[in-house]
């Protein structure tokens, strides 16, 4: 099994395409971080944050007293005021003006990891069929299931590698831009009982990474299934990328309908449950996990069944 994964990795990393993606990934982190740093309000850097926070507090207090404010906004303001009080009291600066600002911002680029891995997943099986190499691959003493699994695992490893690149590059580059200060800066959030709590910034960052990674795995499974079922990389990549970008728009249109909560795209962003603002009232984290698990199981079952059963005729 290990040697099969080594094979898949060899086929992956000895292609220029893969390294173009890695370079694009690094480039996107550099560019994104630089732009954010360049247009950042420099007044938050250094010790300027105290006056900024004090200003913010006054504005939000004023805002709260205005009568035409929605409930959501009101709660947000109240939470922010609590946090800001805590900052001033314990001398904990906000992330703005530190490297954490850029690093957390770069986490958005996980969508690129999804995109790149989907492209490779879509081509992974279909490409072997298209070039005919599948015939020499399947006449070895390794069952089709093992070959399928090795391909799948190599995709997961590839996305993990991109994730590590994202982390390392964004930490180093933002460290250079903002300076490697405030390494141990905690993340402040209002917890369920209405108190401000301190969280570890790096742990939070990886939590964000992994929650977004769930959607990566779902999209990769989808691309892999289409790749296996239709043996067409164009179709697999096309459909999965369309789903990746159009899913959110589609869900906005369908939000009014109750049944839409059972759809994949209503649940794919698990961070909706952390922020406490799910797609529809009454959706819980476990509900979303179940919906995702069912999709995950169906995608992989179909792709495995089709791949191991169908004749290689082309």
């Amino acid at each position: 099994m290990v040697s099969l994964i080594l094979n898949e990795n060899m086929k992956l990393y000895r292609r220029i395409r893969t390294w173009v993606m890695v370079v694009l990934m690094i480039g996107a982190v550099l560019l994104g971080s630089f732009m954010e740093w360049h247009y950042d309000d420099k007044s938050m850097q250094g010790d300027g944050w105290r006056t900024e926070i004090a200003d913010e507090q006054r504005q939000m207090q004023q805002g709260l007293s205005s009568p035409d404010m929605g409930d959501d906004t009101k709660r947000y303001y109240q939470d922010q005021i609590l946090i800001n009080d805590y900052r001033l009291e314990h001398d904990i600066r906000p992330t703005s003006g530190t490297m954490w600002d850029g690093i957390n911002g770069s986490a958005e680029l996980i969508v690129l990891i999804t995109l790149f891995t989907v492209i490779i997943a879509g081509d992974s099986l279909a490409g072997e069929f298209a070039t005919g190499t599948i015939k020499l691959l399947l006449i070895r003493p390794a069952s089709r299931f093992k070959i399928w699994l090795a391909k799948y695992l190599s995709l997961i490893l590839f996305s993990l590698m991109l994730l590590c690149i994202l982390f390392v590059v964004s930490v180093l580059f933002n460290g250079l831009l903002y300076g490697f200060g405030w390494m141990n800066l905690p993340l402040l959030e209002v917890n369920g009982s209405g108190q401000v709590a301190e969280y570890n910034m790096v742990a939070n960052l990886w939590k964000t990474y992994l929650l977004n990674g769930v959607s990566t795995i779902i999209f990769v499974s989808m691309a892999f299934m289409i790749s296996s079922a239709f043996r067409s990389s164009t179709m697999a990549i096309g459909i999965s990328i369309a789903a990746l970008f159009a899913g959110a728009i589609l869900m906005e249109l369908l939000q009014a309908y109750d049944w839409s909560r059972y759809l994949l795209f209503a649940n794919i962003d698990l961070s909706q449950h952390l922020s406490g603002r799910p797609y529809q009232e009454g959706m819980t984290l476990s509900f979303s996990i179940i919906v995702l698990a069912i999709h995950f199981a169906v995608f992989n079952l179909v792709s495995w069944l089709v791949f191991t059963r169908r004749d290689v005729a082309a």
Binding site: L6, N7, M10, R14, G132, R140, P141
Partner: peptide, 21 residues
């Protein structure tokens, strides 16, 4: 049919690939 190998790999790495299996 035709001996379709991985074109982006060297002949040697193609053989390594099959030998590992």
């Amino acid at each position: 049919e035709n001996p379709e190998m991985y074109k982006f790999l060297s002949g040697y790495h193609n053989l390594v690939h099959y030998a590992r299996m």
